Computed example of a mutant assay.
Amino acid sequence: MLSAKSAEVVEATLPVVGAAIGDITPRFYDRLFAAHPELLRDLFNRGNQANGTQREALAGSIAAFASALVAHPGQRPDAMLARIAHKHVSVGIADDQYKVVHEHLFAAIVEVLGEAVTPEVAAAWDEVYWLMANALMAVEDRLRAEAAAADCDPADLWRPYTVVTRHQETDAVTTFVVRPADGRPVPTARPGQYVSVRVELADGAHQIRQYSLSGTADGALRFSVKREPGGEVSQHLYEHLPTGGTVELAPPLGDVSLAEGDGPVLLASAGIGNTPMTAMLGHLAATGSTRRVISVHGDRDQLRHAFRADLEQLTAALPNAVAHVFYERPLGAWPAERTGLVDLSTVEVPAGTTAYLCGPLPFLKHVREQLLAAGVPAADIHYEVFGPDLWLV
């Protein structure tokens, strides 16, 4: 909990720090990577660093955490940090790295704000940092303990997997079915979670990306990759991971997964965001669920719609399921009310619905607003976003 004295100082200086945080985070990363180039080479996503999204996400998370502490100084917003903690564990971030981050972050703050960082201000923001860091470490320690209990050694994060099969969903989306190469059991995954994939690139760098599981198979995991223009890892997987090839995976993680229950479920996605939704639908069908299930998906057209056949088959396998598909530029005849962007005003959302969303940020915001207007409580709307979470920025 944030002390009363620090809460006053943080509240008074939050506008100044918030206004400068766009300058602070680039200097922080520059300092960090100058001192530890291996972090950029083998841990951080070089693409997200180059386009600035990771820096935006860091700035947003710090500002949001500090604002929450000021608004509720007696509480620690752990729930807000769960998503970050899952990502940290999935790439192998260790507790001692928080000290490294602290060193370079506070040096960057002093560089930017200069004499405004008095000892009192420094102490208050130091308290904010360690409340955030300790909250993250607590969640991360719990996640590692859960992984250990599931026969996934947190000290040995990366395991080799053999590609059993790979096939094209669309011209840009490939599905890989992989089985542990070490003969140990496949780790348990909850529908909606992702795996981290680590590859060695031509320059010797080890880059990590997260890909949602699109389902499971007998003793295997199934993840799907959209080949992005200029995407270092997606291009590598597409070009250099054949059937019979080997790839390193971390255990399945992710704070957004399908909760058990009997209430209605709405699964809303856009583009490749239907990957975790396909896994959720597969789980519901495999368990013979009688829940009311509403799937809503938006895509450019039929040819770019990955898992289109899965959506049709899994919906048909569920007794109380319906699917609504929207195409921006449909090929051939298509209902006018399903042409264009996803519009939930034409979809019945029953009382008691729990919603799961995945897709680009504008889509997530639009659908969430419509769900709130339809009476779905904010606590019952869960979202997954690929890449750094910029919702708070």
Rank of each mutant, 00 (worst) to 15 (best):
T170V: 06
V173Q: 08
Y129D: 01
A202H: 15
F106Q: 03
A133K: 06
V112H: 06
E111R: 00
A107T: 07
T174G: 04
P180S: 06
L157I: 05
A181M: 05
H206L: 12
V139M: 11
V199R: 03
L136E: 08
P160Q: 14
A155S: 13
V110D: 04
D151A: 15
P154R: 01
T170W: 03
V195S: 04
G204V: 00
L113G: 01
A135D: 14
V178Y: 02
N134H: 15
G183A: 09
A202Q: 14
V197D: 04
A123S: 09
K99Q: 12
A108R: 02
A150Y: 11
A149D: 11
V112E: 04
A202G: 10
D153I: 13
Y129E: 00
V195F: 08
P191V: 07
T118F: 01
Y129V: 01
W158A: 09
Q168K: 14
C152N: 13
E111L: 04
V121F: 04
D182A: 07
M132N: 06
V112K: 04
R198M: 12
A108W: 05
D96M: 00
A148F: 05
D95M: 06
R159G: 07
R159L: 07
A205G: 08
A124M: 01
A122Q: 12
R144S: 12
P185S: 13
V139P: 00
A145C: 10
A135Y: 04
H206C: 10
V163A: 12
Q97S: 04
A148I: 05
D96Q: 09
M132W: 07
V164G: 10
A122R: 08
E115D: 15
D95C: 01
P154T: 12
T118C: 09
A205H: 14
V195P: 00
V128E: 03
V164I: 14
D95V: 10
H104Y: 15
A145E: 15
F176R: 02
E140M: 13
A149S: 14
A108P: 04
L131G: 10
A108V: 09
W130Y: 11
H102V: 03
T188Q: 11
Y98M: 07
D203T: 12
C152Q: 13
A124W: 02
D141W: 15
A181S: 10
T165G: 08
T162M: 06
F106R: 02
A181F: 10
V117G: 00
F176L: 05
H104E: 00
V197F: 01
L105T: 02
T118M: 07
I109P: 04
L136M: 15
V110N: 00
Y161K: 10
T165A: 15
E111T: 09
L105P: 03
Q193L: 04
E200H: 09
A138T: 15
V173C: 08
H104M: 02
H206N: 11
V100R: 03
N134V: 06
C152F: 08
P185E: 11
P187F: 13
A145Y: 11
R166D: 02
E169C: 08
V197I: 08
V110L: 04
V199Y: 02
E200N: 06
